[in-house]
């Protein structure tokens, strides 16, 4: 083994991105949902704004439903999970049936969550399956290259979402160094100055707060 086509390398990268997108947006969704329990005010529009997604929902109730389950909404969790699956299913020989099965389980769990009276617990199970997916990939992926490409995608997505969603500075900083150590191993051509630019934008919490958009712009140009 060891030979990976250009298309597969892209699928690995995007599998990493989409699984991370599902994971982190579910976490953010859960936090937002929890906040509305006490505050009872409309918060979802700010979430859409920070995520950079169009507010097509109209109300908080519609948002909480559709952001999870509307497959016609390209920003929804179900759409991201479907895209993760589209990339994973063609990589069975690289990531193993066992790893792929966790994506299946997450998809099934998301469907169940739709009619569940314990929705947040179902969402927790999806996070568990995604953790299991990543553990399985670590253990079973055929090659180091595959792991590196997937993790590279994962940390790019994580950086993007952590910066947008104002995750703690420590978490942003940690994910930057994870990305930095992985990107060189992935073997994908990237713009080193953009990576350095991101580093400069997160040199301290204050600098990050002033340069969030710049950091996101540099991230967007990392592979251009």
């Amino acid at each position: 083994m060891g030979a990976i086509s250009l298309e597969k390398s892209q699928q690995m990268y995007w599998l990493g991105r989409y699984t991370e997108r599902v994971f982190t947006t579910l976490q953010a969704y859960t936090i937002l949902f929890d906040e509305t329990v006490d505050e009872r005010q409309v918060l979802y529009d700010k979430f859409c704004q920070t995520m950079g997604i169009p507010d097509v929902y109209g109300s908080q109730a519609v948002f909480f439903e559709n952001f999870l389950f509307d497959s016609n909404d390209s920003s929804s969790v179900v759409s991201s999970l479907d895209r993760a699956f589209d990339n994973a299913v063609v990589l069975r020989d690289e990531i193993s049936s066992e790893s792929l099965s966790y994506i299946h389980l997450a998809m099934e769990q998301l469907q169940m969550a739709r009619t569940s009276r314990e929705r947040l617990l179902d969402l927790q199970s999806i996070l568990d399956y995604l953790y299991a997916f990543w553990g399985s990939v670590d253990d079973r992926a055929n090659s180091e290259v595959c792991r590196n490409l997937m993790k590279c995608g994962r940390y790019v997505e994580r950086m993007d979402l952590y910066v947008r969603l104002h995750f703690s500075y420590a978490e942003v900083e940690r994910s930057y160094y994870k990305l930095r150590s992985r990107i060189g191993k992935a073997g994908m051509p990237y713009q080193e100055e953009m990576l350095d630019c991101i580093g400069e934008c997160i040199i301290s919490e204050e600098v990050l707060n002033e340069n969030r958009q710049k950091a996101l712009n540099c991230l967007a140009q990392l592979f251009s």
């Binding site: 030979a3 990976i4 086509s5 250009l6 298309e7 597969k8 069975r92 020989d93 073997g187």
Partner: peptide
């Protein structure tokens, strides 16, 4: 333990088939 290839992953040069690797 074989590689799953899509048609665009393969090409022929001097009567030899190659798998197009991303690197």
């Amino acid at each position: 333990g074989s590689i799953l290839a899509m048609p665009q992953d393969l090409y022929v040069e001097d009567n030899v088939v190659y798998y197009r690797s991303y690197d």
